[in-house]
Amino acid sequence: MSDNIIPRPIAWIVTENNGLVNLAPFSYFMGVCGEPSIVMVSVAKKKRHDINEPKDTLVNIKQTKKATVCLVPVELTEKMDKTSEVLPYGVNEAEKFGIELEKIDADFPPIVKGCKRAFLTTLYGTFEKEEMVNVAFFLEIKKMYFEGEFEPVARVGKGYARLCEMDNCVGRNYVEHIKELNTHYEGEISFLIQNKKIVGVGFGFDLTLREIQSRLKQKGLPWERAKAFKNAAVFSDFVEIDETENLEIEVYKNGKLVQKGDVSLMIYKPDFLVKDIDKIFGLADGDIIMSGTPKGVGGVEKGDKFTVRILKNKKVLIEKEFTCI
């Protein structure tokens, strides 16, 4: 089976029991639920078929009900592979293989230093049958750790493979827009945050330097120069709202309607975005969430004139004109 279900994400599962830290890589690992946020890891009952001892990870999760899941970045692949060695109970893999650990929360096992994505979890449930050689642990994510850009590694058969770079944004949130990305402007319904709630709505342009982005992607480099330049995000004024139902967006370019969408077309609705972004990054008063763009994005040239609108219940809340200079 492992040769055919590919690629498989791989993570270090870090457990801690009576002061002893165990560090083990698992590739039978995946997300299974968004609300509550749950991941599943499949752990063998025994260390090996010829060693009649339970897996340290299995014992520790059952006893402590906690685990830290550290997604493995490419640069730590070699060290991760070493920790797959079967060791006697009580031997610390981190010390044996020179892997630094970092305690970021007193209530959970440490993370592997250098990992840029980690989930601090508690045991939600198990699936275990006598005839099965593995136990499926369902772990509920209580806290998340994110730092910088991340290029993950995955298990492919008996080897490993690099996957694409990942960054964090609300992107490709409208179904039809997933098909079209060779463009420069994106009109987006944007939300103003206060007390971790949506209190206002406005229009936002998300601008991208596509030629620079393409070159960076080809070289496997980050996209900041293409996405985070001066005036890359342009906004209208915001108006107060108390709920987000029946919001619509319209973008006219040189008098022609080029973008039109509403919140019903969003894959991830505004309330979910607020909760998810706050859980991962935290939200402060005055923050703005750009919620993704509907189909119809396109290129920008000097002299182009845009008229944009935000509507609610078919009534215009915001109308503003922009000219490209």
Rank of each mutant, 00 (worst) to 15 (best):
T57W: 09
L207C: 10
H49D: 14
A118E: 05
L207D: 02
Y145V: 13
V170W: 09
K269Y: 04
I51A: 05
T77A: 15
N17L: 15
A106I: 06
L207S: 09
G90V: 06
K197M: 14
I325W: 09
V153K: 01
F205W: 06
V112K: 07
M266I: 02
R162T: 12
K295F: 14
D105M: 07
L71G: 12
V199L: 04
F127I: 15
A11T: 02
K305C: 12
V201M: 00
F29L: 14
A284G: 12
E102V: 11
K62M: 15
F281E: 09
Q218L: 11
P25C: 02
C164H: 08
A228W: 10
G292M: 03
M80K: 01
F119W: 04
E147I: 07
E211R: 03
V91E: 11
I325N: 14
N182K: 11
G282I: 04
V14K: 06
I13T: 08
R210Y: 10
I10F: 04
D50L: 00
V251S: 00
D285I: 12
I288D: 02
I61R: 05
E93T: 06
N22Q: 08
K315A: 10
V234I: 14
D3H: 12
L120K: 00
E53C: 12
N60I: 12
P73A: 13
V175Y: 15
R309I: 02
E102Y: 08
D107I: 08
I111P: 00
S37Y: 05
G159Q: 07
P25N: 03
V39M: 06
W223L: 11
K79R: 02
A106M: 03
K227E: 03
E140N: 11
V153L: 06
V297E: 03
R48I: 04
F235I: 06
K197Y: 05
G31N: 11
A67C: 07
T57E: 02
A11H: 01
N92P: 10
P73M: 07
V153W: 02
V316G: 08
T323C: 09
G125Y: 01
F146C: 11
T244S: 14
L273Y: 00
D276I: 09
E93Q: 10
D105P: 04
